[in-house]
């Protein structure tokens, strides 16, 4: 079958191009993070070493490399992201369940979903500047609490939308069957709907986590000068020192990759089987 052969070849070529676009920027970032000396017209750095990594991770304290310590920033970002995930999901799960399963009039449902979307429906800078003015009055600017609130506003729309569609995809009879054999409403939810919607809920939580880890604009307006998350550190490093910027960029990738691995472990075949109905 010559046609099959052509299609296979085209597929492989497209795959290689994809990999190229995906990996080359990453590769250049990795090279930059270990380049000690790299001047034009050299294709590769003249001198490589882990000095910037060690300095960034606080393992050496060299005065010549500049004082960037990303560990506190990384831990702060991680802490904020975890709290944001917990807060967002504790709002999004009940909200999504209510929107999907309860008999809410259609217009009201639309109104609620638009309400969650509203902060994201306008250009972000004006929204955050206004938010900053409000937060200024109540003393939330420059605090971790203020930054957490901003991240919550940014991520909740996606979380609610994803959880709503996840819960909607689970046939109501499954919960009714649980109730008919004697399970209370709460038990039916915990034992039937929740495990079956786990993939969607985890996807939603991961999305919120990554949004929070990456969030820059809101953090910038609300958090400065005291709350320096990893993206803020990356921003200040990128102007002066491309090696530090590369180190931070790679560090920002770590949680995403870790999460992908965890999800793969967690998404058991049974759950995926459940998604098909």
């Amino acid at each position: 079958m010559p046609k099959n052969w052509i299609i296979k070849t085209i597929e492989i070529i497209i795959f290689i191009i994809f990999l190229f676009f995906l990996l080359v920027p990453l590769l250049s970032t990795i090279i930059w993070s270990i380049a000690l000396r790299w001047y034009w017209p050299n294709t590769f750095p003249q001198e490589i070493g882990l000095d910037y990594w060690l300095q960034a991770l606080g393992m050496i304290k060299s005065l010549t490399l500049g004082a960037v310590n990303v560990i506190p920033a990384f831990l702060l970002s991680l802490g904020i992201a975890i709290i944001v995930v917990l807060l967002t999901m504790s709002i999004a799960i009940p909200a999504g369940y209510a929107l999907a399963k309860l008999r809410i009039p259609k217009f009201l449902k639309g109104l609620i979903l638009i309400l969650f979307l509203l902060p994201r429906a306008f250009p972000q800078q004006p929204v955050f500047i206004n938010l900053m003015l409000v937060f200024n009055k109540i003393g939330l600017t420059g605090t971790v609490g203020g930054v957490i609130l901003v991240h919550l506003v940014v991520s909740i729309v996606y979380a609610v939308w994803i959880t709503t569609s996840t819960f909607s995809s689970i046939p109501p009879e499954l919960e009714e069957a649980a109730r008919s054999v004697g399970a209370s409403r709460i038990r039916s939810f915990l034992k039937i709907t929740l495990p079956l919607s786990a993939p969607g809920l985890i996807a939603s939580a991961v999305f919120v986590f990554l949004t929070s880890m990456d969030e820059f604009t809101g953090t910038f307006f609300i958090g400065i000068p005291f709350v320096t998350t990893l993206p803020m550190t990356l921003y200040s490093a990128s102007g002066s020192n491309i090696q530090f910027a590369s180190v931070i960029a790679i560090l920002l990738l770590v949680p995403s990759i870790l999460f992908m691995i965890i999800i793969q472990k967690f998404l058991k075949a049974e759950y995926l089987g459940g998604m098909g109905g």
Binding site: P171, E173, L174, A177, A178, S184, I192, L196
Partner: peptide, 20 residues
């Protein structure tokens, strides 16, 4: 009385077996 307290068995059209 809520459904779980009625003690009535039900068979659904699409069976509604719990897939997990």
């Amino acid at each position: 009385i809520p459904p779980e307290k009625r003690g009535i068995g039900m068979v659904f059209q699409n069976y509604a077996l719990w897939p997990h």
